[in-house]
Computed example of a mutant assay.
Amino acid sequence: MKASSLKELRDELKIYPPEQLQALCIRLAKFKKENKELLTYLLFEADNEQSYVESVKIEMDESFESINRRSTYLIKKSLRKILRDTNKYIKYSGIKTTELDLLIYFCRKVRTSKIPLSRSVALQNIYVRQVAKIESVLAKLHEDIQIDYQDDLRFLKA
């Protein structure tokens, strides 16, 4: 089965009554966990972006606390999982400042949680890629907003 384009889907959804749209959304949420998470964000958390960012940061803190530090391999796997979840939450939001806040927080946690970046090239690469991603997102924003994040970026590069 070939998936329809967004325009075709949008045009088709216009003809459905609200009750059927609600049923379609519920069915979509039952199908996959990410769909349910996105719908939860859109319905309950999109109105208050700051509390959404704080809840994601709390979840990141818990994940950093549970990192298995027995080997660099396990640290790398844990960091990738935290980063994968963070990128998923960034994707739900779609707001660049939220993306910056969460990526900067991730990098700060890596720096302050005594993860031995110098022992593993893979760990260094994860960190360096995120700093580069922060720089590229920051370059796309307005100059006033860029100034707000310059101190954070200097800390991450030091």
Rank of each mutant, 00 (worst) to 15 (best):
A122Q: 06
E45N: 10
L153Y: 14
L117E: 04
I134C: 04
S78C: 00
L9K: 09
K114G: 12
K32W: 15
L123A: 03
S93T: 00
S78Q: 01
E34A: 08
L100P: 01
F64Q: 03
P116S: 03
K114N: 14
E99A: 14
I58R: 12
K76W: 14
S66D: 10
S113T: 00
F64P: 00
I82R: 01
Y41V: 07
V131W: 02
L43D: 13
K30G: 14
R111D: 15
C25Q: 11
R27A: 05
K2Y: 15
K33Q: 08
L138T: 08
Y52H: 00
S55P: 03
Q124D: 14
C25I: 14
E49K: 10
I90A: 10
T72W: 09
L103P: 06
Y127C: 00
Q20L: 09
M1A: 13
R69Q: 07
V128N: 14
K88L: 08
Q22K: 04
L9D: 11
A23V: 12
Q20Y: 05
D47M: 08
L100A: 06
I67R: 01
E12M: 12
Q130S: 08
L102N: 00
L123V: 01
L102E: 01
L24S: 09
D148F: 09
D148Q: 12
Q150P: 12
K157T: 07
S55T: 05
A132K: 09
L103A: 14
K33P: 10
D61F: 04
K114P: 07
V121N: 13
Y16C: 09
L21W: 04
